[in-house]
Simulated scan of single mutants.
Amino acid sequence: MITRRDYLKLSAAAGVALAISPKLLLADDSPRALITRAIPGTTEQLPVVGLGSSASFSRVAGEGDTARIRGILEALVREGGRVFDTAPGYGASEEVAGRAAQEAGLAEKLFWATKLNVAGRHGGAADPAAARAQLEQSYARIGKSPIDLVQVHNLGDVATQLAILREAKAAGRVRYIGLTTTFEQQYADLERHMRQEELDFIGVDYAVDNRTMEKRIFPLARERGIGVLAYAPFGRRRLWERVEGRALPDWAAEYDIATWGQFFLKFVVSNPAVTVATPSTSQPRNVVDNLGAAIGRLPDEAVRRRMVEHIEALG
């Protein structure tokens, strides 16, 4: 068993990072299909691990490196992934990824999840004309209609912007709609909207060291038949810093976990409320590693508790 860092060093040294398949990251090296989960209320299945586009992905996009972004998206699709989560608020991510996907002929192969927010993170009223213009910009960038999923980002003026998304869904231009937040002070508002609105999805932060969603939001999502995109499954950088220089526990192999990235992701996607986890990365080899968490055995409740205890014991 090796750490993600050791694995990446080895693969880079061997020059094979882009050629490996997720099966090579499994403890027993056996080929298996990606685990999928149905969007609630439908028969549509999605691989439980996708790709996000904030953080390092956004930085690469901001450099205008379309070729590198294309390589990341190609790795996702080649290895069986589909879900790509982005937003106009993630710098150049939506624009550059859309261009790269169209150039590579991937636009129709991806499940595009983007966002709508002209109200801003700190609230305020959204200009309906500006919101509609932003949505049209997303259509142009992504090159796909209908867009699979559009969510109101960070609960920005939900009344105005969710109404616009409902119009787009009714017109057949958006397949699914929802709300997102990764801010604790907005969790109560999110719960209220989940009870009052007809939503297909929510997008929230969730990780082995960040389990607030298990208390109220996830049970409500299951009750209401709402899909969940899990953001920040690595705790942004927190979890990587916590396991720095540490080897995986031996028992992780029993659940086809070969790297810390897969450990973190298997905890997230083993929660039945989670439809897809969308870790962000700027490296194709990380995409492949992450997809390894969508293969093989998932932890049961007892093992999930053991995973939490193990991470907490690291201090």
Rank of each mutant, 00 (worst) to 15 (best):
P233W: 06
E309F: 03
Q283R: 11
G41C: 01
P272T: 07
S270W: 10
Y206V: 02
M194Y: 08
A107V: 12
P272C: 07
L149H: 03
A170F: 03
A13G: 13
F183T: 12
T212S: 06
R132W: 04
I217N: 01
L165G: 02
I202G: 02
Y176G: 00
G227C: 11
K109H: 15
L162Q: 00
R192T: 13
A55I: 11
T36E: 09
G89V: 13
D65F: 08
P219H: 02
S270K: 05
F234W: 12
K169R: 15
V208L: 14
V152K: 03
V49P: 04
D209L: 15
E94S: 08
T43F: 00
A253K: 10
V243L: 14
E94L: 04
G91V: 10
A230S: 06
A129Y: 08
A221P: 01
A55S: 14
L34N: 12
E74I: 11
V96Y: 02
I69G: 10
T181A: 01
G143P: 01
M194F: 06
I257C: 05
L24W: 14
P249N: 11
E191P: 00
G156H: 14
D148T: 07
V268N: 10
E197R: 04
D148G: 06
L155I: 13
A131D: 07
P88Y: 14
D205M: 05
R222D: 02
I177D: 02
G315L: 06
L46D: 03
H193F: 14
R32A: 14
G143N: 08
L24M: 14
F183I: 09
R175W: 03
R173Q: 15
K115H: 11
A133C: 08
A87W: 09
L220T: 02
A258T: 08
T114F: 12
D127P: 06
G71K: 11
H153M: 13
P284R: 08
F234E: 03
K109Y: 13
Q45Y: 03
L179F: 07
E198H: 05
L190G: 00
A14N: 03
L179T: 02
V243H: 04
R175A: 10
